[in-house]
Write a protein that binds this DNA or RNA. Structure first.
Length: 476
RNA sequence: GCCCCCUUCGUCUAUCGGUUAGGACGCCAGGUUUUCAACCUGGAAAGAGGAGUUCGAUUCUCCUAGGGGGUGCCA
């Protein structure tokens, strides 16, 4: 019987939930779900000054939107401070930690000197074995961890492989600040242990931390978790993610019209692969995801590929589901109108034709604008060109045929138009484009038969009539 | 400066010593077509450089270069 897998996502609420964090959460979620384990959430808010309520909300909301559900209540790290302090004091009592009275100035000088001499930087351990009686008055000490000075610390990382650190390069880190609050390095170890975390999957910016944490685990006599440090995500230019490209909050991706399932698919393939497979349903991801498939190199964020994937997911989505997504999205779009019940129904009716052509929900929404346009329609310049003399003649001719239709069905509409084109000796395009212009005000739309069908007899004929009415004043 | 990690088409990646180095996005050309997409066919496009190990290296080792991360009383 193997122990149940428990993973966690542990963001610090000092900013928004960015794309790299989402991927880390996704990997942890996938791994837990794959093994029938738990995926826990821990808010690392030990830095009280920089943590905000808004950031916490954004993180939770972002994970919900991505449909990465977590088990149990989130743990707020700062609420566990007394336990962290208790562990630090235990280390102190066991002689595995000590009080250090260095001032910030002293520390800065120490670093500077080490650098100047080409030595590894860091605290030199000057209070490690000093008599506490020599403590200067008026200084609140920090508690430092007595890190091993000889030998090496080895991390058997599931992604990076065996990584070895010389202990001499790892200094005595601070466990408790001079104000008595615990630091991150102590808190993670204690919380991961207490929460029973078995696998720590996180960004490789934590790789060095893993070594320090391993030392703390050892000092405490605790079993460290399995580590898997995944490579970071870079911007399209290979540099660190900045606001200009990927480092947007996850809600920005929602507002750009991406589907959570598309984002999940894109993100899982960024740094992880399963042969040549590109498309993964959530079930497949859970089944196939594994640590050995994770790449070691950093990946660049590519909007084009995300967009292609998003288009795929939109095309394959249910019409109802897309309506739901749009209803959720509209309030976040600038000057988006409130649709009536009837308009939503119209939109759903048009969805099969619309979803084939959109890469994002925003695009989908814009391409649906003709449905709700007010008569008489405004023509784009290109559309107006199709309503020249010849175009209007074709339009007038086909209008007659359409008016005669008994049943306004897709089949009847198509037959009527094809018949008219044939009888008038016109290529279908010569009829379709003027129709498209009259009905949508543009030159791009779903199939013209669809457009007529979706718009309905009355509205269609009225829009056509609008363009036929002013005989001498072509608009645009 | 010091420590750690990384390096296959423009991008994401496959390959786990022997392949015409494969796929996907993007790009180009063609097809299909009522527009635009979608779709189909074809094309250009890669092992950072240098030493080894080996009958044979993209694959293993080392060096160099380049990139990234860390180096806090941040997380």
């Amino acid at each position: 019987m193997s122990e149940p897998v428990i993973t966690r996502f542990a963001p610090s609420p000092t900013g928004f939930l960015h794309i790299g964090g989402v991927r880390t959460a996704l990997f942890n979620w996938l791994y837990a779900r794959k093994h029938g384990g738990q995926f826990r959430l821990r808010i690392e808010d030990t830095d009280r000054a920089r943590s905000t309520e808004a950031a916490i909300d954004a993180i939770l909301e972002g994970l919900r939107w991505m449909q990465l559900d977590w088990d149990d209540e989130p743990v707020f790290q700062h609420s566990r401070a007394s336990r962290h302090i208790e562990v630090a004091e235990r280390l102190l009592a066991e002689g595995k930690a000590y009080r250090c009275y260095c001032t910030p100035e002293e520390l800065a000088q120490m670093r500077e000197q080490a650098r100047a001499e080409g030595r590894p930087p860091g605290y030199d351990g000057r209070w490690r074995d000093r008599d506490p009686a020599s403590a200067p008055a008026g200084i609140d000490p920090v508690i430092r961890f007595k890190a091993p000075r000889q030998g090496e610390t080895v991390i058997e990382d599931q992604v990076q492989g065996k990584v070895t650190f010389a202990n001499a390069a790892l200094d005595d880190l601070v466990l408790l600040r001079s104000d008595g609050t615990p630091t991150y390095m102590l808190s993670v170890v204690v919380d991961d242990h207490d929460m029973g975390i078995t696998h720590v999957i996180r960004g490789d910016d934590h790789l060095t931390n893993a070594a320090r944490q391993a030392q703390i685990y050892a000092a405490l006599g605790w079993q460290p978790p399995v580590f898997a440090h995944i490579p970071l995500i870079h911007g399209p230019d290979g540099a660190k993610l900045s606001k200009r490209h990927g480092a947007l909050g996850i809600e920005a991706y929602r507002d750009m019209g991406y589907l959570p399932e598309a984002l999940r698919n894109y993100l899982v393939r960024l740094g992880w692969s399963h042969g040549d497979q590109e498309i993964f349903s959530t079930e497949e991801m859970i089944e196939l995801f594994d640590l050995p498939g994770i790449n070691k190199a950093a990946a660049r964020f590519d909007f084009k590929k995300l967009e292609a994937l998003n288009g795929h997911y939109i095309r394959h989505a249910e019409d109802r589901a897309l309506i739901g997504h749009l209803q959720a999205l509209l309030p976040h779009l600038p000057d988006a109108p409130q649709l009536t019940q009837a308009q939503w129904q119209l939109l759903e009716k048009a969805m099969p034709g619309l979803k084939e052509r959109a890469k994002t929900l925003v695009e989908l929404w814009h391409s649906a604008a003709f449905l709700f346009a007010k008569r008489p329609l405004e023509m784009t310049p290109k559309a107006a060109k199709w309503l020249d003399e010849a175009g209007r003649a074709a339009l007038a001719g086909v209008a007659v045929a359409l008016r005669e239709l008994q049943d306004w069905t897709l089949e009847n509409i198509e037959t009527a138009i094809r018949n008219y084109a044939e009888q008038a000796d016109l290529k279908l395009g010569k009829v379709a484009q003027p129709l498209r212009a009259a009905l949508t005000g543009t030159t791009v739309s779903p199939s013209i038969f669809d457009v007529l069908h979706v718009l309905g007899r009355e509205e269609s004929l009225a829009r056509i009539a609008d363009q036929l009415a002013p005989p001498q004043q072509p608009q645009g």
